[in-house]
Amino acid sequence: MNKQDFFEELQELLELDFTLTETTVIGEIDSLNLLSLITFLDENFDIQKTGEELKSITSVKNIIDLIGEDSLS
């Protein structure tokens, strides 16, 4: 997945009504969206995380750090 597709998919996943960039602060993610994020990371990047581990995510940068820049070609 390239970076642009990633921003768009993440925006749709979290149902945000603003465009995402690398520096966007999302704020606290609610529990249902955290469950969606778990599936998104697993299916697209083969990353398995628990709800507890993702709880502290508040920005796009936090998620990119998890995935690794290299995975977003």
Partner: peptide
């Protein structure tokens, strides 16, 4: 339990 928060 791993997929939800400790509180849940």
């Amino acid at each position: 339990f791993a997929s939800i928060s400790e509180q849940s």
